[in-house]
Design a protein around this nucleic acid. Sequence first.
DNA 1: AGGGGGACCTGTGCGC
DNA 2: TGCGCACAGGTCCCCC
Length: 285
Amino acid sequence: MPELPEVETVRRGLAAVMEGRPIVNVLVRRGDLRRPLPEGFAAALTGRTVIAIDRRAKYLLFRLDDGTVVIAHLGMSGSMVIEQAVDSQAPDAFPDPNMAGGKHEHIVFSVGNGTQIRFSDPRRFGLMDLATEETLADHPLLASIGPEPLEESFDGAALAARLTGKRTPIKSALLDQRIVAGLGNIYVCEALFAAALSPRRSAHTVQGGRADRLLRSIKSVLLAAIEAGGSTLRDHVAPSGEIGYFQHNFQVYGREDEPCPSCAQPIHRLVQAGRSTFFCSRCQR
DNA sequence: AGGGGGACCTGTGCGC
DNA sequence: TGCGCACAGGTCCCCC
């Protein structure tokens, strides 16, 4: 589900209810996510206050008042559900697992004002881990991630430099988090369409004006998606329960055989590195 | 060394 | 209605 715009939407929703508040309880229903929750996860969080919630690539970073940092990834199907506790006297009260929607809510955080934040992840490709402010930058999950695409300093020249010598298709290069952070299958397809670049083009040929164009397309697609509250496919919702609506603005993603919004030729689908790519073979070169 | 393929999981939708 | 298959927003490990 979540690419950079969705994770950013989740971050904003969580920040509004968690920042400045103590975590009074952490209930782990299932700790066997993509990797097992670290030893002592719940104990490390309980009683700590959330100072800030940040985002790096598709990771959420919960900064706690003792220097602990919780690293969380939503995987393909993860989401955060915010709800007022049914009974504020029993902050670890958990909804009946047999109730609809509760089955995949693996971790429940209760914060000081009686609000529950529940991590739901049907496929369990998500993960959570612990670091400290000192070790965060060197954490294996974060150490080799490339620049944030929305950083002011990330310009066409910086993108071009990171694509130099790459023989892989530009589609695959943009999915590689070491080259640029936060992009996923949807927004890569959309950005390549906006830049009129073929997903099959060898990455090293994206230099100069092409790199400038691609860089501008990446930024504008991401910013528009964040503005729209992300994209809601299937059941993904922002923590507030509101759905994002950027999916209505997809130009090519998921639109195989539909007319290209620019030239009306049918949109093609192909598979690259095991992932579907949607593009217009006439507009994108 | 870098890149592609499979693995990790569960749910859903479609064709037969 | 039921079954089996294809496919899904991500990442990691292994092998060439």
